[in-house]
Design a protein around this nucleic acid. Structure first.
Ligand code: SF4
Ligand code: SF4
Lengths: 138, 138
DNA sequence: TTATATCGGACTAATTAAGTCGTATATATG
DNA sequence: CATATATACGACTTAATTAGTCCGATATAA
């Protein structure tokens, strides 16, 4: 099953919400959670990760919350996937320095090449799709 | 994590092995399992599914085993994925007749469109890659 | 001072993928 | 015909990942 994590979906929807309500100032996790029907605690963790990657910024305390930091055009799906510690990795050996240690079949494998090419193209698809396009496509 | 199931990898490698040893007649699960280092019982289930989809054919009994049925050029990765009951389904709503029942956010969701397009392209990538190309790319 | 937020780690539950086991059936061969 | 070898197939267990929850800490506006 090739699927994207729910947390990535939640992230996209949350960033959209924060952007569209930016006139209100900081948007709280609770508001987003209520409006989008996303479990509060889960959403909180997601937003904290997006914050660490400078996609959004936070303000603590009463009347605190989140606001956009990056431009929408700079937030690709790939950036969100990475911010949430997810990966596009079709096989175990699709890593920085692959070696036989990852897989007993490594040396004679005829798969890495073709699958690697497909993975590169999938990566392109996700990195060429930004929040800007997603919001405009409405 | 966007990854393909190990069973799909095993299937590709097994089909390759069966094709390359077709001069021997029927190839047993045990031989493939030994040569490729794939758990016997798991491989057996995989081959049975490939057989049901007419990708390979079987012969029971002593000196039985599997041999190719489809042409390599007709066996795409998509075909193998489907034969193994796997799916390329980026989100829960990417089904035949999607509706609000699948997801509370369905009606206002801005995601289905863009993700659907990406999924279509991923599908193309996998269906345009056949066993013939994979084997030639060696 | 208090109410409202984020911060962040640890934990549990649910789902899926990976692997195993047992029993039945088919068949080539001595 | 007996036997060894092989597929057929469903049930089961285990491992890995994802999804969701909980709790105590810190920051800050009012
Ligand atoms: S079998 Fe090939 S593609 Fe799969 S993990 Fe091993 S080296 Fe990589
Ligand atoms: S949030 Fe949108 S993309 Fe995700 S499952 Fe619901 S309708 Fe589909």
């Amino acid at each position: 099953m090739l699927k994207i994590a729910k947390s990535v979906e939640y992230a996209i929807l949350a960033v959209k919400y924060i952007h569209e309500n930016s006139h209100k100032g900081s948007i709280s996790t609770k508001e987003i959670s209520n409006e989008l029907n996303i479990p509060f605690d889960l959403l909180a963790k997601i937003l904290q990760k997006l914050m660490k990657e400078q996609i959004i910024q936070s303000k603590q305390g009463t009347r605190g919350g989140y606001s956009m930091k990056s431009k929408l055009s700079e937030v690709s799906i790939t950036k969100l996937i990475e911010a949430l510690d997810q990966k596009i990795q079709l096989t175990d050996c699709m890593v920085q320095n692959p070696s036989a240690s990852d897989c007993g079949r490594f040396d004679t494998c005829c798969l890495r090449g073709p699958l690697g090419q497909i993975q590169d193209k999938i990566n392109l698809l996700f990195s060429n799709t930004t929040m800007e396009e997603i919001i405009q496509s409405n």
